[in-house]
Amino acid sequence: MLNPGPERHVMSTDLLDEVASVAAQKKAMQEGGCKFLPHGCRLFSIPQGWESNMIRRDKGVSTCETMLELEAAVQDAGVKVLFIPVDALMTDEDIEKICQRNGVTKTLFKEVNEA
């Protein structure tokens, strides 16, 4: 008979993070503002807190602190979701400009400080 070890019962941390990230993304999409950017890109605001931490921790999400990082992530076909921390070196206009010149559809979450 198979002896189910603990690993059979415990969800992996990565998977948990991924599930939490999707929940956080859904919450941001529902509650945060959405900005329609060029080429079908969308920018959602996400308040600083557990939701933004969950998205940042998701290995499938690329965190972009600078415009160089943002453009590299936008140009990476393997990256679909991008996270922009609250203290990133870029304005909303910068984000729009980068989306405009790279004709590709990405979903961006921008951390905002609501305090």
């Binding site: 060029p38 080429h39 936008v74 140009q75 076909a77 405009q100 010149r101 790279n102 004709g103 590709v104 559809t105």
Partner: peptide, 15 residues
């Protein structure tokens, strides 16, 4: 213009 490119590839289309 970019859409027609996007339909063909998942790489970005330079605008």
């Amino acid at each position: 213009g970019a859409l027609q490119g996007r339909l063909r590839t998942d790489r970005p289309i330079e605008v």
